[in-house]
Design a protein around this nucleic acid. Sequence first.
RNA 1: GCCUCUGUGGUGGAAUUGGUAGACACGCAGGACUUAAAAUCCUGUGGCCUUAACAGCUGUGCGGGUUCAAGUCCCGCCGGAGGUACCA
Length: 1131
Amino acid sequence: MEYHFREIENKWQAFWAANKTFRAEDSSSKPKYYVLDMFPYPSGAGLHVGHPLGYIASDIVARYKRHKGFNVLHPMGYDSFGLPAEQYAIQTGQHPAITTEQNINRYREQLDKIGFSFDWEREVRTSDPNYYKWTQWIFIQIFNSWYNNTSNKTEKIDSLISEFEKNGNSKVNAVCDDNVKHFSASEWKAFSEKQKSDALMAYRIAYLGEAYVNWCPALGTVLANDEVKDGVSERGGHPVERKLMKQWSMRITAYAQRLLEGLDTLDWTESLKESQRHWIGRSEGTSLRFSLIPNPSPKEKGTARQKWQTADPAIYALLKNYARENRQPLTESEDTLWQALRNRQLEFKFRRQHPIGTYIADFICLEKNLIIEVDGEIHSKQKEKDEERTKVLNELGFDVIRFTNAEVSKSLDTVKAVIKKKLGDSPPLLRRGAGGEAGSQTHIEVFTTRPDTIFGVSFVTLAPEHELVAQLTTPEQKAIVEDYVTKAKNRSERERQTDVTKVTGVPTGSYVEHPFTGKLIPIWVGDYVLAGYGTGAVMAVPAHDERDHKFAKHFGLPLPQVIVPTKEHDLDKEAWGEKEGKLINSDFLNGLEVKDAIKKAIAEIEKKNIGKGKINFRLRDAVFGRQRYWGEPIPIYYKNDIPYALSENELPLVLPEVDKYLPTEDGEPPLARANNWKYKNEFAYEHSTMPGWAGSSWYFLRYMDAKNNGQFAGKQFMDYWKNVDLYIGGSEHATGHLLYVRFWTKALKDLGYINIEEPAQKLINQGMIQGRSNKIYKCSGMFKQDDDHDGNQEIFHFPEVFISKEIYDEISKQEQNSRQKNEPSELDKKLLGFQNVVNAKLKSAKPNFKNTFIIQNNTYAGYYQINVDVNIVSNDILDANKFRQWRPEYKDAFLFPSDENFRCADEVEKMSKSKWNVVSPDEMCEKFGADTLRLYEMFLGPLEQSKPWNTNGITGVSGFLKKLWRLYIGTISEDAPTKAELKTLHATIKKITEDIERFSFNTSVSNFMICVNELTDLKCNKRSVLEPLIILISPYAPHITEELWSILGHKQSIAFEKFPEFNPAFLVEDNFNYPVSFNGKMRFNIELPTTLSPAEIEKIVLEHENSQKYLEGKTPKKVIVVPKKIVNIVV
RNA sequence: GCCUCUGUGGUGGAAUUGGUAGACACGCAGGACUUAAAAUCCUGUGGCCUUAACAGCUGUGCGGGUUCAAGUCCCGCCGGAGGUACCA
């Protein structure tokens, strides 16, 4: 009876499906074990051999745990919302749901062929309304939550509202927007609906806020930070720019500390945890305020005025009264314009009759420094006056637009459009407060991790986007600062990131005061300071910070030293950035070690009330909205500009149909195209959709109760299954999915829905499987055309000529040695012979073919490499027949030296269609069977390691299964096993158990081979040995073992058979073959009874005849005997 | 630059706590079976030197160290892979 894997595998796959063998029980007396694979995005390309690597490993663990008596949850599903299906839809018009469905079916087919023990009844698809209903529901819970820093928990928004009603927001200790305005309880109660909504929005964990986002014009959507790599989108590689946008975001920053601390409790790889730690980026430091010194005259310190105090103080009172008087009797056109401007109708606040310098402006927008004047009748004198007035106002930093009465009354819309455009054009910060005035700010706040270096500050640097830049710039510096800021802002993110060696910056002309010495410190603007981190301003200590050092050297700024380096160091060349050394030139810090100096400095800073110890995180809030179609609709509608969440019974908010999957003409997301898609037919829904990570942030919970229509999952099931015991997936999700899923888990826990703090206890990253390409060399320009050209070339295409790797190597070697001999080399002779063969064949096959093939210039430059399909190559030897069928133009191809043993070159590259190196698991299943594929993928090497796919060793694994099969075919003996047989079996049980427990699957396969080799040598046919053996193998090769199990006469599946127990008694040896070494060098073996004492062993070994030879008559200095290990003699 | 991982025959890799380096498999070489091929089986296979044979020397990226004993531990370098970055 032969091993026909195809029949066997089909039979058992059908059996498992029909009997629902791998259905997980919802409650059980058995202990639970949850093995989860990171679910795949069903792409059009189908699975390649890299995908199943992790699935096979998890399947082995799942099957092993079933043998070990666990109730195992091992589900699979699809992350089926996403960009590729939508991009395909844009190109073809095909609905992404259809593409997705097709791709899923293909995935399922491929997965089924490999024989995974998934519980398919629990399959989830994130694009299924029954699933995303609950994604939307969780979004609403998070929307209706805030983060209470006092309880360090997510809390329902109600508790915040009742606090507002009682005390306003002044006592609230929450994670919220920067610069929230304070309000009292009574103010809260007096708030309009809109004001209340806005106030709460600053606290919600899912919130709508304005922020700089990663905008990708090519994809037409914003992206989260982890979706952007090197300034381009991770998917598609399109450029990404920074853009200020109103966006749904998630306040993941609230969880930064918990996300960081939680890592210590997890059994994940160090590199993964390290990635997350770095992404969270906690740094402990100090905030520190530097007092501003108003410019140009430092004497006026303390007279800094508010931003709206724009009038000349000398005549302010007068002007004010005058303005008041003027306010009532507005001309008709002035009134018309006022009605159009007031209440932020153009998004910005306007004031009327506002004193500026010595004037009173008609209308003014202080935020934009824009003045609108409405003029009466124009006569020349007035015109002159107006021009004078405009000039003065311009000098004060205001733009002035003038309209006539007629313009306002007749074409108000045009007037409004002009104003609106101007408001949009003028950058809000640039022109503010020209003249170096500090405005309302009295200080610059910096963040530093090195407060000990405070006496080494030689300048302060602001990010170009810093809000004080414009105000602090003196008139003399205005032009150059504005220019710099504009350039810095327009520099793309990519440029800024890649061009880090370039030092740029400009001085503002203003100064701050050193908090301890009172010295003046210049303020610079430099783009090495990031607006988004800390306060967007740094105190520069060039002697002890590398970046500051570079900047200072570039601009010739001083490098005051405050720390004595602990080793030789040239401070002029390089900064001493180590946290080591003694403080000098630092007043009260002198003589302290850095660590103590930091503590002391913080204490002094806090005492002086100019700053305090502070912790900063690099982690940013996660942008949640996507301006795309194929994702979960965000369950929000807008009524009077106020966002409201849908109620639970209105879910799911189903993704509507649209005519095109493109943005609308005015740039709205595709969902804006949906016809009559309105809440209660009246209110607009949110038009952006959720990002890919929404659905994957909780799918591990849904598997516990996948069909529940009343809840996202039943509490009793979540309490039973708790968290994932083993999660296997790629490391590419380190800072995306794996961080977000931890965030949602913590939020859901705080809100009382689940009882676990972390989603997955143990996580393994499977390594990537790279492609191994095969290449051959094509000759170019090898046919010499006959002079008697008769146009036959059109009838006969030139046969292609290829050379093997060996010949190519020979030719290139010869080329390098630059042949000088006149005699033809061996290679030349070979080539010449080949030339004749080709021409002879050509003549007989195609008599009309007039061209001759010649090898005139056998240099390697005449050849170029082409990729051949790896599927027509085995062990690097090209299958000549398949090659000729591969492409029509190769039909008559010549292979040199010969069709047999034509060796291809190889290279390890990314697996891709264009390299012809993609290997799909289907073909491997077809050729060798699923069991061989499973064993071979494991046999390749450690699971976590990346490795190139090559099938060179697969025959070994396939041979092993055949050998295993042969062991079971024939008479099975019921006799008692021999000692040797038992020893082999139990040694294997021991190793396999240990291997699986430490996820070392490659060694398991080797151990099976050793075991089967030994049992074959022993001609073992004992049931008592063979039965336990196939249970051991069954997690790895489930089909063949099921078949053998039934051949052995069992009617039940092998899947739940008890895993064999290791019995050490069978491994006890009477003798041990001691290696005897002299001075650590192994010389000979000696077999001794294990019962001997070390002293006896020493005696026997020393007396052994071989020992005499190595002792050379000397007495050994020392003899080490380690029982059952080694004997070492020191001479 | 920093962080994590990693470096062992022609190749994939093994050596779990310091204790016989190279298990297992591929490839290669030789042989058996066969008209032939495939399949299968057997033998050999780190390098060097030498031999009839035994044996000897050397050997886990490089240089040191600890130890009776180092692929494994420590120090200093070099190479490869991945992650990450003006993060103050």
